[in-house]
Nucleic acid binder design. Structure first.
Length: 588
RNA sequence: GCCGAAGUAGCUCAAUAGAUAGAGCAACUGAAUCGUAAUCAGUAGGUUGUGGGUUUGAUUCCUACCUUCGGCACCA
């Protein structure tokens, strides 16, 4: 664990390294103008306007070399302070710095700069005393990045790097990067034949291979059973709807750009559905409901289509055809708290079953200033947001608040996780919605015989099966829990002539107990088959030879371990079945 | 969508300063029957992502598109 003091030290180092990067860039490309160079979770970056120059792979090496050279010269890093007026004068030819200075707080009359040799940059600091202390750094990647994070602005060039106190830490970090590549779900998905894609099918349209499909089916069965126990009613609805359906819901205005284009048939217009809320609203509306029936929980494993930007598509994580673990809960205003709590508890429960511990709860709120995106009803938002906050506080779960992350119709709780490569993604979500019930004119009859508008909770525990599978692959490194994995036991007879019959007996015995077992009866060496059994990450490999045949036992080894355990067959079966029922995370 | 990179056998990769491509693994055939991570030999496998152009000749150069990768933006 890194303590706060050490992490501050590391931040200072990285921030100073960002300045070193800028100085080196300025040496090599004098036309360079600099925007900002902040420290991020992994290292730092700097956003730079290089005019017509475009950074290439080989430039990164050149810049890094120049950085080393400057660092070796060992200039001191000196802080000095200017008045706002002086600063405006000093940077009068630099529109980026002028922009920064002009946006500074009115009260902030003193502006600090840091100078190292021939390079001065506007900065609050702190910095290390000398560039000499910057030794163990590496530039990692570069890309375009919109000025002020706004796609309407011009694109600057961003260079990423990391800096550490010693070489060992740097090497450790680089190894970790390599490690992350190894557990990337796209790599494991290929290696273990979980899913594939084909350009003829289209970008973001994965094909689930038998192994991947098996895992997904396990997830479906698992959550279906849980939802049924909690009183959910599951439905099937079409993957296509009229555009009027989405105009009614309001999704059309917000998301038509990200839907597959309209299909015209006779006089009607259809789209592939991007979400299932409207269908479920209409199912609720199918008959008159009493307050006694509420909450009504409509669930569906629903395939949706979204035309995700080409640059956003990624493995199973961000796709254009996905299957949501969706449900809409129709509740009275008094039931919001309890139902929301049930959903949070279900999420916690599921994550525990899968051994997922690295996640963060995010309370996603509206940006009150953004009247365009968010439905304009301050009172509704205040009620909704404080309701969610209240439940989270009562449950005593850790969460953070994020302004501007809400859906257009309401605030939500999102569960954020970090994939092997790339930025954080949302796995589970639970959204509070006062709006759609109004748009669809939903109602129930309350105690007094009056019509009331229900409140809707949208929720997806796995999010989409696609994305959850992607995350599960990366969390487990492809070593799936016993109850999930497609093949649980692999039987290898030492010798096909003498041991195959006994191996077959054991195979049939396990098969009868619904254990997912394979028998490897190829004419190959034992060590060859064991190797393959290990690379396929099969949890248990049973080896049967003379010893086992005579004693009527089995010998097995557990994935990832080398020792051999000999056991009575019934004991082995009991053990495995128990482990499956318990949903053990590790193989024992 | 934007900035940048890449696409060669099922997989991982090599090669060519422009003269139609090789290896390992996998597959197939045969031999070996071998007790805990790769037995040996042989066979087959490619319109070098797709279309267009330059050229006597293009996998290599140009161009458009498709797909993938690293970021940015987006994410109901």
């Amino acid at each position: 664990m890194i303590n706060i003091k050490e992490s501050e030290k590391l931040n200072t180092l990285n921030h100073s390294c960002a300045h070193l990067l800028a100085q080196a860039v300025k040496h090599l490309y004098p036309q360079a103008k600099f925007w900002v160079g902040p420290v991020i979770e992994d290292g730092f970056y700097y956003d730079i306007d290089l005019g017509d120059k475009v950074i290439k792979d080989e430039d990164l090496n050149k810049i890094e070399k120049e950085m080393k050279k400057i660092a070796k010269d060992g200039k001191r890093i000196v802080r000095h302070e200017l008045s706002k007026k002086e600063a405006l004068e000093m940077f009068k030819d630099d529109e980026y710095k002028l922009d920064l200075i002009s946006r500074m707080d009115e009260n902030e009359q003193v502006i600090s700069c840091y100078t190292q040799g021939d390079f001065t940059d506007l900065c609050r600091g702190p910095h290390v005393e000398s560039v000499k202390l910057l030794k163990h750094f590496k530039l990692l990647k570069f890309s375009g990045a919109y000025w002020k994070n706004d796609a309407k602005n011009k694109m600057l060039q961003r260079i990423y790097g990391v800096c550490f106190e010693n070489e060992e830490d740097l090497q450790k970090y680089l190894e970790e990067l390599e490690d992350r590549k190894q557990r990337d779900h796209r790599k494991i998905g290929k290696d273990q034949e979980l899913f594939m894609s084909h350009e003829l099918v289209g970008s973001g349209m994965p094909l689930w291979l038998p192994n991947g499909a098996f895992i997904r089916k396990q997830l479906e069965n698992y959550i279906y059973e849980k939802e049924q126990k909690m009183g959910y009613k599951h439905v099937y609805t079409p993957c296509i709807g009229t555009t009027n359906l989405y105009k009614t819901s309001g999704h059309w205005d917000h998301y038509k750009e990200n839907m597959f284009p309209v299909m015209k048939v006779d006089d009607e217009e259809f789209v592939l559905r991007p979400m299932n809320c409207p269908h479920h609203m209409l199912i609720f509306k199918n008959k008159l409901h009493s307050y006694r029936e509420l909450p009504i929980r409509i669930g569906e494993f629903a395939t949706d289509f979204r035309y995700e930007a080409s640059g956003a598509v990624k493995g199973l994580e961000r796709v254009r055809c996905m299957c949501q673990n969706d449900a809409h809960l129709f509740v009275t205003p008094e039931q919001i708290g309890k139902e929301f709590e049930n959903v949070v508890n279900l999420i916690l429960d599921v994550y525990k079953d899968f051994g997922i511990t690295n996640y963060k709860f995010r309370l996603s709120l509206r940006d009150p200033k953004d009247k365009e995106k968010y439905f304009d009803d301050d009172k509704m938002w205040d009620v909704a947001e404080s309701k969610l906050r209240e439940v989270l506080n009562n449950l005593k779960v850790d969460y953070f608040e994020a302004i501007g992350e809400a859906a257009f119709y309401g605030p939500k709780l999102d569960v954020e996780v970090k994939p092997a490569i790339g930025p954080e993604i949302t796995l589970s979500t639970c959204q509070l919605d006062f709006l759609l019930p109004r748009k669809f004119d939903l109602s129930y009859i309350d105690k007094n015989g009056e019509k009331e508008i229900p409140v809707v909770l949208h929720r997806a525990i796995f999010g989409t099966f696609d994305r959850f599978t992607a995350f599960l692959i990366e969390e487990t490194k492809g070593i799936f829990p016993l109850w999930v994995t497609p093949v649980q036991v692999n039987i290898i007879p030492v010798n096909n002539t003498y041991h195959l019959e006994y191996a077959n007996d054991i195979y049939n015995l396990l098969k009868e107990k619904n254990i997912r077992v394979e028998l490897d009866d190829r004419n190959e060496k034992l060590s060859y088959k064991i190797r393959e059994s290990q690379t396929r990450k099969i949890p248990y490999t049973i080896i049967l030879g003379d010893k086992e045949k005579e004693s009527k036992n089995i010998s097995y080894r557990i994935f990832g371990k080398t020792e051999t355990i000999t056991l009575n067959t019934d004991e082995f079966i009991d053990k495995i079945i128990k482990s499956i029922i318990n949903k053990d995370i590790e193989y024992k």
